[in-house]
Design a binder for these strands. Structure first.
Length: 460
DNA sequence: ATCGGCTCGCGCAA
DNA sequence: TGCGCGAAGCCGAT
């Protein structure tokens, strides 16, 4: 069995899920890597798996990407950023002798057409852990004429070392740490044996296309415009990583919760689109010359917390709903449904930053203008939405709407887990009971003003 | 400035 | 069955 052979010799056994029972067609002409989430040409377990399979079969590899704009919260902002990253990734792939096929179509339909058109032996796809991607892969698995193999390529420790939704960081942390030594190692990129100068017909050629022009031509929200100083792609991610290690990391542990200073890596959008791998980032930080406290604090974020968020979305497909709340959280929020709110804002009032709270307004403006909110302030931001909404359900959907619409890293497991933590105490524990919050951990703008250099945050 | 209490339930030790 | 402890808090007492 050919696939068994690649599983034995690669390091990815726990990352593999076969999405259908069809055979690998050894008489086919190529292997196709259906790129979705892991939009990079290096440090990519899904790409490496596809290359290894192609080499075993003695075939070339083709990368397929379906550009689909009829997508919730699709905007010029995120498409420009994504296309900049894809432009760099496709050039790197072509350099390696792997043609890049990009078509504007619905991905699960496009991959089936491409597999037939190019006579694929098998298709390898990366995993995004979210519902839309899951439903697309299901469609493709049912319609492809050959095997569809899914690779978990965004985690450092494979998500399937645990087989259930974890209760909190403290339950997943020991499992991750136990396996971490094995996975915190640099794995060289596989190189393709059979390089092919395939000229895929009807492909968008990113080498000759301006990402912004292409993004503008799509059927996406034109009101959410590109953010200043954000250029997608691995080069920019690596330069941010280097700057972070030099300037932010040394102060990370002490100052990460002060909204008046910026010690964050700002790599989240690059991680969201898979333009840089979390393993590459974690290895660089681990080896950095910085206080151990700061290194540990950052690794906790990029490994434990990030992979807890992935675990949440992987094992709970209600990750964007109050259905995902634990019993104690639902009970306590229910008990406070009729508590009087200081103000009830409409979505439009929130969106345009017109609340009585100047700190919250500043956070909302940061989101609209820069596509992000300071990591500490983002919690205060979401907690306030709970206070100003008629129901927890409404608060949840408004927070998710605003985050997914404006954040460059929207529609990400991190975002859903973060908002779930804020609104309904996911992965958290109960605290002293208060109005509206019940036993959900309370955070307020007033307390944040007492504790941090907030004036630096508010000033324009 | 620092500290305890608040409050639930998982997971492990026993 | 008991017990320790947990993402980032808040408040009030000392």
């Amino acid at each position: 069995m050919i696939f068994g052979a690649i599983m034995d010799k690669n390091l990815y056994a726990k990352r593999v899920v076969e999405l259908n029972n069809l055979p690998v067609d050894e008489g086919g002409k190529c292997v196709i890597y259906w790129m979705q989430r892991s939009q990079r040409a290096t440090d990519n377990p899904a790409l490496n798996s596809a290359v290894n399979l192609a080499n075993d079969l003695g075939k070339p590899l083709l990368v397929y990407f379906g550009l689909f704009d009829v997508y919730p919260m699709a905007s010029v902002r995120v498409f420009k950023f994504m296309l900049e990253g894809l432009k760099e990734a496709s050039a790197a792939l072509i350099d390696k002798g792997i043609p890049f096929l990009m078509r504007r179509e619905m991905p699960p339909e496009g991959i089936v057409r491409a597999a037939i058109e190019f006579n694929a032996c098998a298709v390898v796809v990366d995993e995004d852990y979210l519902n839309i991607g899951r439903s697309w892969r299901k469609i493709a698995a049912d319609r492809l004429p050959v095997r569809l193999i899914q690779i978990d390529a965004e985690t450092i420790v494979p998500a399937r070392i645990t087989h259930k939704e974890e209760w909190g960081a403290y339950t997943i942390r020991p499992k991750i740490l136990k396996a971490l030594d094995q996975y915190m190692t640099d794995i060289p990129d596989s190189s393709i044996n059979h390089k092919l100068r395939l000229e895929p017909g009807n492909s968008i050629d990113l080498s000759t296309v301006d990402p912004l022009t292409l993004a503008n031509s799509l059927d996406v929200d034109q009101q959410v415009t590109p953010t200043p100083h954000s250029i997608g792609g691995l080069s920019e991610a690596l330069s941010r990583l280097e700057r972070f290690i030099r300037e932010g990391l040394p102060r990370y542990s002490d100052e990460k919760n002060d909204i008046g200073v910026s010690v964050s890596s700002n790599l989240s959008p690059y991680l969201h689109f898979g333009q840089i791998s979390s393993l590459r980032t974690a290895l660089a930080v681990q080896d950095a010359d910085a206080p151990g406290e700061s290194i540990d604090a950052f690794l906790e974020q990029i490994i434990v917390r990030r992979e807890l968020a992935i675990n949440f979305c992987l094992y709970n497909n209600r990750y964007d709903s109050l259905d995902a709340a634990s019993d104690w959280a639902r009970r306590t929020l229910d008990a406070h449904r009729t508590d009087e709110r200081p103000e009830l804002y409409l979505l439009e009032e929130l969106e345009s930053a017109q609340t009585y709270d100047q700190l919250w307004n500043a956070a909302q403006l940061e989101l609209v203008r820069f596509g992000r909110i300071h990591s500490y302030m983002r919690m205060v931001w979401a907690k306030n939405i709970l206070v100003w909404s008629p129901t927890p359900e409404e608060a949840l959907s408004q927070a998710i709407y605003l985050n997914d619409k404006y954040a460059l890293d929207g529609r990400d497991p991190n975002g859903y887990a973060n908002i779930a933590w804020c609104i309904f105490g996911k992965h958290d524990r109960p605290f002293a009971e208060r109005p509206i919050f019940g036993k959900i951990r309370c955070m307020t703008s007033e307390a944040t003003m007492r504790k941090t250099h907030w004036r630096n945050y508010i000033k324009p």
